[in-house]
């Protein structure tokens, strides 16, 4: 697995994460959220087989949430986009592996 870490700041609370893969691959991505009391919360995102790119929203859920780590399969690649607005579809990522 590969990982991407992000620390929330005052400006951005919405990100798009895009998993780029091969057609037909069914993948699972884990989002581990970190909170100021040192607790964590884990979520799973299933990347559907059809298509080569799957984009989903990661939003800061609470002021006590400080950061998150995204764990994704080594056979895939990740791009991350900052959202200035809701219902916004940015085309330029700030992170790509």
């Amino acid at each position: 697995m590969k990982s991407f870490s992000y620390t929330w700041d005052d400006r951005y609370f919405l990100l798009h994460l895009q998993i780029n893969k091969e057609e037909g691959q069914l993948l699972e991505v884990k989002i581990v959220r970190k909170f100021c009391d040192n607790t964590t919360r884990e979520e799973s995102v299933i990347v559907r087989p059809s298509g080569v790119g799957h984009r989903f929203l990661v939003t800061r859920t609470h002021p006590n949430e400080l950061a998150f780590v995204c764990f994704y399969p080594s056979i895939s690649k990740l791009e991350v986009y900052k959202l200035d607005d809701r219902a916004y579809y940015p085309t330029h990522s700030f992170y790509a592996d």
Partner: peptide, 13 residues
Amino acid sequence: ATHVTVEKIEAEA
């Protein structure tokens, strides 16, 4: 379509 994305309803105001 150009975008098919999972979001939250609050994103639509």
